[in-house]
Design a protein around this nucleic acid. Structure first.
Lengths: 228, 228
DNA sequence: ATGTATAAAATCGTATACGATCAGTTAACC
DNA sequence: GGTTAACTGATCGTATACGATTTTATACAT
């Protein structure tokens, strides 16, 4: 056993670090839509060579966060309202399926935990803490996901959340008016699962829950931001 | 304009060629489950350096076709019955959604084309041509997909088909008993779309269509192959 | 014989280097 | 003056090289 273990937090590979760093910059808006990702430049910024940076960018391309052209390079993909709609719609479908598949495996303890999280979310409404609210929202749904017996669907859900968090932070804003309804719908969803409702009902409820969030965002975007 | 253009069929990047080559070998069984993908060896086989091979393998890892461990290497992922079930179930969900979303945009000409393809599939039953049948099957569904307004969902469907074709070819076999039912269900699906049935009905029909195929495969596997 | 420590081989991860390709610019030509 | 051709700079794509890490083989002690 090495004595010097864990002095580095979690270096991982340099490709991994590059991937995280670039994605973070896309998420926080440092690299906005259309930003040109130049291998050499990023490599210098991160003090690594171009090889791991290239690998990171190819991964981001596969996730649709950047567009890539041979011998041209990568640019941060622009996220317009339509793109946002497509992402949310996709997430609503896979999330609905994941929730329905998980429902039979959710225990009473899980329900209790989810309900506790939802109460904390309710608190966030009073103290106006949208950051914590968003974080708790993921936690809440995660409780319902973790028992999904299909790893592929679970993976799609995670990718969807990740993508949402990345693109939303750089373009869309929090919609306070929607949050209270969301908490209420969470409670309805828990009651459905508690009462062993059939999977179709649960799937529809979960899907509509997200679809309603989508609609709220779109209405908000239309009346305030107008475009990307 | 260059006179020497197109002497190479479609070189693309070497990473691309490596990716295609490795995936083909996984699909045809040359690289069976558990096969160790050694960078240097593959690079030598393909007459390229290790860098593009590494990139190809990382892409395959992202698609779940190989498992990868730091400083260890990549091995072809084993596909057991459960894995196959998960892939098919995921495909049934995204395909159902894609079909439902596309339905309102499918024209009479599309219906006619699909029906023509389905007739050819019926012919394949008589002449016993499973290879062509499988190919036509993809064509049939593609007609229903192409109008899907959500590119993300469409992408998931394509990935699902691709994955299915890759893993099934190397482990699972054609199930003749199922084919005739499949053709009949295609006709039912077309009639639903023709009659402008509501999207939920279409989604359910499309999903069940695939689920039935899944069940048939599993029964077949249980009674004949017994495991992977 | 078994377990452990050391040495060797194999393989991965990344830095560096260089050729290939493309966009933008300048110069030549009509 | 407008069009085309060659040039330049920037950037990507990949080969090669080397260090880091893991696995395997070997020797030794118990």
């Amino acid at each position: 056993m090495s004595l010097a273990a864990n002095v580095e937090p979690a270096p991982g590979s340099k490709s991994e670090r590059a991937y995280d760093a670039i994605k973070a910059k896309i998420a926080d808006g440092s690299y906005g839509a259309g930003y040109r990702l130049v291998l050499g430049r990023i490599a210098k910024d991160l003090n690594v060579s171009v090889v791991p940076v290239r690998e990171a960018i190819r991964r981001l391309e596969a996730e649709g966060l950047v567009t890539f052209e041979r011998n041209i390079g990568a640019t941060v993909a622009g996220i317009d309202t339509g793109e946002y709609l497509h992402t949310m719609q996709t997430l609503s479908i896979v999330e609905g399926a994941a929730t329905a598949l998980s429902a039979p495996l959710v225990s009473d303890a899980d329900i209790a935990a989810a309900r506790r999280i939802n109460e904390q979310m309710r608190d966030c409404l009073d103290h106006f803490d949208p950051v914590r609210f968003t974080s708790l929202n993921l936690e809440f749904h995660s409780v319902l996901f973790t028992h999904c017996p299909n790893p592929h669907i679970l993976d799609l859900v995670h990718r969807g959340w990740d993508r949402l968090n990345t693109i939303r932070a750089s373009t869309f804003n929090y919609v306070p008016g929607r949050a209270r309804e969301s908490v209420a719908e969470h409670e309805e969803l828990l009651q459905l699962i508690e009462s062993d409702a059939d999977v179709d009902t649960i799937e529809r409820a979960a899907r509509n829950h997200r679809a309603a969030t989508l609609t709220a965002y779109l209405n908000h975007a239309e009346t305030s931001v107008e475009g990307a």
